[in-house]
């Protein structure tokens, strides 16, 4: 029968040791907003819950050598309230605004959001456009992998059972325009049906000189949509261009996913949301 033990390690090192020892019978719990739901539904049946929610080593948002470092234990509320992120990663900050509810934002962590490998994780597209790298600690030491490699499929993680995300390292950027948008079935407390994050800079002549764009909730794993970026860069943003870029985005998405039933909505909607999100950069 189910036997669950609770373990609260005192340090990351401690946690790794425990995780290495227990193997796949242990589950990490941070904010618990995914873990508790999965426990209730029987989706996961761990024997050990390893609580990392109070490890100081996983906290904090800071600049280190021109890199923006966000601890895996940083909560969505902390992300939303961070002045540093407002300056250097505003799209990430915005992704916290319509994330679940106040209660959940107060405990849910960015590490949990990424590690859960849900295609709908709202912090992921912003992390992708900042070309984030994920700091992993495991029994073999530390690793740094690109954010796009964490998920190998929906809810399937690249991480070994003994590995822990300790932090995310972002390329900070004060872009002229940055945004995150999502569409859910209601205005709050909604999982993204689709989401996207973008950063744009323009040259003096008004053409797009720099663009980073990522689509969320539509593909099994997160993607920077490089063809879309390439298409847009060097051009003057007009409404017409946005529709074309959005069209290309929809096509790129379908190339990855194939034509599933949900595409009937998502095909026009990704194009539409793309236009809506980028409209402020027209002129």
């Amino acid at each position: 029968m189910s036997k669950i033990a609770y373990i609260k390690p005192d340090s990351v090192g401690d946690a790794i040791e425990i995780l290495a020892d227990k193997g796949s019978s242990a589950a990490i719990i941070a904010g618990g907003t995914d873990v508790m739901v999965d426990l209730r539904s029987g989706e996961i049946t761990p024997e050990y819950l390893v609580d990392i929610s109070r490890l100081e080593e996983l906290k904090g948002i800071r600049m280190e050598n021109d890199e923006l470092v966000i601890g895996a234990g940083v909560t969505l509320s902390e992300i939303y309230n961070s002045d540093l992120l407002a300056e250097y990663a505003p799209a990430l900050k915005k992704s916290a605004y319509n994330f679940a509810s106040a209660q959940i934002r107060n405990i849910a962590t960015i590490g949990g959001n990424v590690a859960h490998c849900s295609p709908c994780g709202d912090t992921i597209p912003p992390l992708v456009i900042h070309e984030a790298e994920v700091l992993l600690s495991g029994k073999d030491g530390q690793k740094r992998i690109p954010i796009e490699q964490v998920a190998t499929g929906p809810y399937r993680s690249f991480l070994e059972p003994h590995e822990l995300i300790t932090a995310f390292v972002l390329k900070p950027r004060k872009a002229a325009f940055a945004d995150f948008k999502k569409i859910g079935r209601r205005k709050d407390l909604a999982i993204s049906r689709l989401s996207m994050a973008v950063m744009i800079d323009k040259s003096d002549d008004g053409t797009i000189s720099f663009m980073r764009f990522s689509l969320g909730a539509c593909t099994p794993t997160p993607h920077r949509m490089i063809p879309v970026e390439e298409f847009m860069v060097g051009k003057k943003p007009t409404e017409k261009l946005l529709f074309e870029g959005g069209r290309l985005l929809a096509e790129s998405m379908i190339e990855i996913t194939g034509r599933r039933p949900s595409i009937i909505y998502k095909e026009p909607a990704v194009q539409g949301l793309f236009v809506r999100m980028l409209h402020p950069v027209v002129n």
Binding site: Y6, M36, D51, S53, S101, A102, Q103, I107
Partner: peptide, 12 residues
């Protein structure tokens, strides 16, 4: 801070 007590472990 407001939190959902159903999503929190008692141990926490």
């Amino acid at each position: 801070k407001a939190v959902n007590s159903c999503l929190m472990l008692g141990a926490q």
